[in-house]
Design a protein around this nucleic acid. Structure first.
Lengths: 140, 140
DNA sequence: CTGTATCCGTTAGGATACTG
DNA sequence: CAGTATCCTAACGGATACAG
């Protein structure tokens, strides 16, 4: 049920962009919420489901599970299952994942240099494009 | 109308992540569809609305407009309005935007090295996480 | 020509309950 | 403990009409 991706414009555009440049694929992987955080946490040896959940305030099981699966599928992390009594699973970052983390570091540096800390990125598609960002009239 | 961003978990999580690391802000800017493409095109001197639209197969006015506004607000590009008869507007990439483009290049390189060309990134949140990706062969 | 406003479908992302 | 399945909602992304 629920055909996840119809062949309507939305999807077509996605394909179009994917073909246009690999960058779009990359961004669709790491551009999703939580993904970068999870990746970095695992790199810092937070390797178990429950630990990750603890670190990530407010993430729900479902979402964490999806993110992990996504990362495994794209081979940014690997999953190791230990058939022990209380069942243990550990994730670790692959070499390709490590490379990616490095680039993300650059990205982060850029952000620190060019986005004021207090700025909120609220994309606000559509009409009421009120910007809570970068126009700090507020001499707060 | 339509409070665009309630203070429900969704938004709270976003704030949480933004506070956690600047990287999340960066990714929310450039992780949106078309954004990277538009940025790169403008860098290549495709500086006008209609030209951009021509280059970007299938983007609609609304969306292009939003993307441009977003980029202007985050100061990745600048907008120059010429009060001529048929009204001319030109966009150009700012210095900070140029820096970002460079990092995005690295990101793209990573992708070219680590994502097979034919792979489709269809995140498929939710249940039926069938992967159209990275498990080719899969003679299910 | 260069957009903005409105409306609308799809999907990402979350809450919850339940399984191995 | 480590997840998956189901359902739900807001927001993204798009079409269209219209305004400056």
């Amino acid at each position: 049920m629920s055909i996840r991706k119809s062949n309507s414009t939305n999807t077509l555009n996605e394909f179009y962009l994917d073909d246009r440049c690999t960058l779009n694929k990359v961004l669709r992987i790491i551009g999703k919420r939580w993904v970068s955080e999870v990746l970095v946490l695992i790199k810092q040896d937070v390797s178990r489901f429950s630990q990750l959940k603890e670190c990530l305030n407010g993430i729900s099981d479902n979402v964490l599970s999806n993110v992990l699966n996504q990362l495994v599928k794209t081979q940014l992390i690997t999953k190791e299952i230990f058939n022990e009594v209380p069942l243990r699973v550990e994730y670790s970052v692959s070499s390709s994942g490590l490379e990616l983390v490095n680039v993300m570091h650059d990205l982060c540096s850029w952000g620190k240099n060019h986005i004021p800390y207090e700025v909120r990125i609220l994309p606000t598609y559509g009409k009421n494009t009120q910007s809570l960002m970068l126009d700090k009239d507020s001499n707060s």
